[in-house]
């Protein structure tokens, strides 16, 4: 009788342990999903304006579509940038750039060739590079957006020409913000950029589009910010 009781007790214990283990594993998977998804990071330099890296992140957070984990990086290192591309869904950058690269600070640069040398896989769904000529291909520094998509970033938005703004019109910052706002409204990246540019052209009376006309999308244009 007592042996049976003990057996029963052991069975119950085993069952409880199994349930706890399965539940823990399940929780782990969910936490991992949350760790990568619905997260957004902004990158800018301390000696530059923050532009979309701050305003764009805020726009997404305030849109009420479930993006609630954010981080801002000022004068970051290439290693930190890479980490964000591994564990953030969306990364928005505004900085100084030139053909084949972007800068993260006055000393730190990310070249197309830098990304080509990375051995890790990147899992960001959208990287928005608001920087002069970062989308142009360089025979020395490589083709940055292409290398990023090759390493796993799903969609890269970049500019092939110089981008700029004036204190009165806000130029490229206004364009970027319209594009991000469109994305929060359920449009895909392709649709958002196309719509933003159409809207922006109507605003620019002097025919100077502040470099917005040189935007390009590398990778899949069908990515969109998921609403919860």
């Amino acid at each position: 009788m007592s042996k049976n009781k003990n057996k029963c007790k052991k069975k119950r214990l085993c069952f409880t342990v199994c349930i706890i283990c399965i539940a823990s594993m399940f929780l782990g998977v969910i936490s991992a999903e949350a760790y990568v998804s619905k997260t957004i990071a902004g990158y800018y330099r301390s000696d530059f304006v923050s532009g979309i890296a701050e305003a764009g992140v805020q726009q997404v957070l305030n849109a009420g579509i479930g993006y609630n984990i954010s981080s801002y990086h000022v004068d970051a290192s290439a290693a930190t940038f890479k980490k964000s591309l591994q564990n953030r869904e969306v990364v928005l950058l505004h900085s100084h750039g030139s053909t084949g690269y972007v800068t993260l600070s006055s000393t730190e640069k990310v070249y197309g060739t830098t990304v080509a040398s990375w051995t890790d896989t990147l899992s960001a769904k959208l990287l928005y590079l608001s920087a002069c000529k970062a989308g142009a291909q360089s025979s020395t520094y490589g083709f940055l957006p292409y290398e990023l998509t090759k390493k796993g970033v799903r969609t890269v938005v970049s500019f092939k020409e110089n981008i700029s703004a004036s204190s009165t019109t806000n130029g490229i910052h206004q364009f970027n913000l319209i594009a991000i706002t469109n994305m929060t409204q359920g449009y895909t990246v392709s649709q958002s950029m196309a719509l933003a540019y159409t809207t922006f052209r109507g605003m620019c009376t002097s025919g100077n589009y502040w470099g917005a006309d040189s935007y390009q999308i590398t990778g899949y244009g069908d990515y969109y910010l998921r609403h919860t």
Binding site: L13, T16, V17, I20, C21, I22, A23, S24, M25, F26, L27, G28, V29, S31, A32, E33, Y35, V36, Q86, D120, T121, L122, S123, G152
Partner: peptide
């Protein structure tokens, strides 16, 4: 002892789930 064992196992399973997921998501 039992509580420690169960907690340990639970933590182990959580870690397996978490890192397993990240690994599947990102590993080439």
């Amino acid at each position: 002892g039992k509580i420690i064992l169960i907690t340990g196992l639970a933590l182990l399973c959580f870690a397996a789930g978490f890192f397993g997921r990240v690994y599947v998501e990102s590993h080439p």
